[in-house]
């Protein structure tokens, strides 16, 4: 196995993780809520419970502003590079939405919160989506020879 050693990126990653963990901590300690992005978004657009709309909107809006602010200040960060075209993005979005709704969560809800709750469901879900992410990238990059 060839491993890319980039200690600056590892430090940034660890710092980003501390921020994400703190964000999830605030939500559960103060509001009693799991900071799972697919759950917060799905609840906002699909569940007809209007009393819940405000905090969900604030959380998701905060994410966009937080990312924009950090990118504006940290100008040396790598510019995000898309891995697929319009059709790939549309298809991937569709199955990510369907899959996270079906599987009750994504990287944040299952990965960051569920594992910390010692939830068997979340631990197994995280192992499963990681494994299929790896398999998918392997198929695209090494068997089909694509650039994903």
């Amino acid at each position: 196995m060839n491993v890319l050693v980039d200690t600056d990126a590892w430090l940034r990653a660890a710092g980003g993780g501390l921020l994400i963990g703190s964000a999830a901590g605030l939500m559960i300690i103060f509001n009693g809520r799991i900071a799972g992005v697919s759950g917060v978004l799905g609840g906002l657009v699909l569940d007809r419970n209007s009393g819940e709309r405000r905090w969900r909107t604030m959380f998701l809006g905060g994410m966009v502003i937080g990312a924009a602010a950090l990118t504006a200040f940290a100008t040396s960060l790598p510019v995000p590079q898309l891995q697929t075209g319009w059709l790939g993005m549309a298809a991937a979005g569709l199955i990510v939405g369907y899959g996270t709704r079906m599987g009750s969560g994504c990287t944040s809800g299952h990965g960051v919160c569920g594992i910390a709750r010692l939830s068997t469901r979340s631990i197994l879900a995280t192992i499963t989506f990681m494994a299929f992410g790896v398999i998918t990238v392997y198929l695209i990059r090494h068997l089909l020879g694509g650039s994903a």
């Binding site: 790939g88 979005g93 990510v96 899959g99 996270t100 599987g103 879900a125 992410g133 790896v134």
Partner: peptide, 29 residues
């Protein structure tokens, strides 16, 4: 549903390199 949902999510994550949180955050771009 838990496991099948995670399988589908993993495939989509692999194709686009985006999961729900980063997709939302990236709207800023």
């Amino acid at each position: 549903p838990l496991l099948l949902g995670a399988v589908l999510f993993g495939i989509g994550w692999g194709i686009a390199g985006l999961c729900p949180g980063p997709a939302i955050a990236n709207l800023a771009s």
